[in-house]
């Protein structure tokens, strides 16, 4: 028998991943800080963010007792930001998660269960995509009233079709690989192939998409709340803070700056995380470099 080298290729030195790791690290740090901020808000807040304190109104940042100052009604800005982070986390992650679950099931089914299933699911997704997200949100808000749950539902309805599309195309490219043919040859049923072979191979795509839609969810929620159809007090959202600040901009612009800055930093961080994860998880890139 011909001599065959069994020695597998030695692992590639990790150093090359340097620049990618920087993106990933920044994204990870911002995201963890954001989640920590939201988590702490459940146990500890410097002040009650909903109780007005007229004597303390419009204090500047760095005032004693008020880290980032107070708003027009004397409510602590930092406390409001913390509770706002909680809302953003719930709404962004919740919306993206529901969309992820439904989109994955729909996308896999469209890819694997034949033309009729594919046509039905893909056309439905197209129709849903053609309705602007804001319209969905406004209709929902008008029918079941605005609030956190409504916003989550609106976001997931808005994201599900794009998720479905992404998962469908990723699954299609996995399904045409030869190892699927091999599994079919062993008479594995379709559901088994989907769970055992397709799902692990699209998991990377799922995680990356989740982070990106998480960010988009935060942004959209801020937009909705800014328009006054998102969450309502006693919940607090960064978009709502922007809205309230805008009524006072003539008086104190830092009021708009803090929630605005929070939105920008968190959305940017999540996007960096998504990009970093894409580089690490994308099997095509991994294959190319090995």
């Amino acid at each position: 028998m011909s001599a065959a080298a069994t020695t597998p290729v030695p692992a590639r030195p990790k150093k090359r991943r340097g620049r990618r790791n920087l993106t990933l690290t920044i994204g990870l740090v911002v995201t963890i800080a954001f989640i920590a901020m939201a988590a702490v808000s459940f146990f500890y807040l410097p002040h009650n963010p909903n109780v007005p304190r007229i004597p303390d109104r419009l204090l500047p940042a760095g005032s004693p007792r008020y880290l980032l100052g107070t708003d027009a009604l004397g409510r602590d800005i930092f406390s409001q930001l913390m509770v706002g982070a909680r809302t953003s986390l719930m709404v962004g992650a919740g919306g993206a998660l529901i969309a992820l679950v439904i989109g994955t099931i729909a996308g896999l089914s469209a890819a694997a269960f034949g033309r009729i299933a594919d046509e039905t699911i893909s056309r439905s997704a197209d129709i849903m995509l053609s309705i602007p997200g804001m319209v969905t949100a406004l209709v929902l808000a008008a029918t079941i009233g605005s609030g956190t749950l409504t916003t989550i539902l609106a976001l997931s309805a808005f994201f599900t079709p794009s998720f479905t599309r992404v998962i469908r195309s990723a699954a299609l490219s996995v399904l045409q690989e030869d190892f699927i043919t091999a599994a079919r040859l062993y008479a594995r049923p379709t559901w088994f192939i989907l769970l055992r072979h397709v799902l692990p191979n699209v998991a990377g795509v799922m995680i990356v998409q989740f982070t990106l839609y998480f960010a988009a969810g935060i942004l959209t929620e801020a937009g909705l709340s800014y328009l006054g159809v998102g969450v309502t007090r006693p919940s607090i959202s960064w978009g709502m803070m922007l809205n309230e600040a805008q009524q006072q901009v003539g008086i104190s612009s830092p009021l708009a700056m803090w929630p605005g800055l929070s939105i920008v930093i968190v959305v940017l961080g999540l996007n960096l995380l998504g990009d970093g994860l894409r580089d690490v998880l994308d099997p095509k890139l991994a294959r190319r470099t090995s």
Partner: peptide, 12 residues
């Protein structure tokens, strides 16, 4: 005739 083994990877 066959050449045993394989092309080495760049890092090895």
């Amino acid at each position: 005739h066959s050449i045993p083994g394989m092309v080495p990877p760049l890092h090895a």
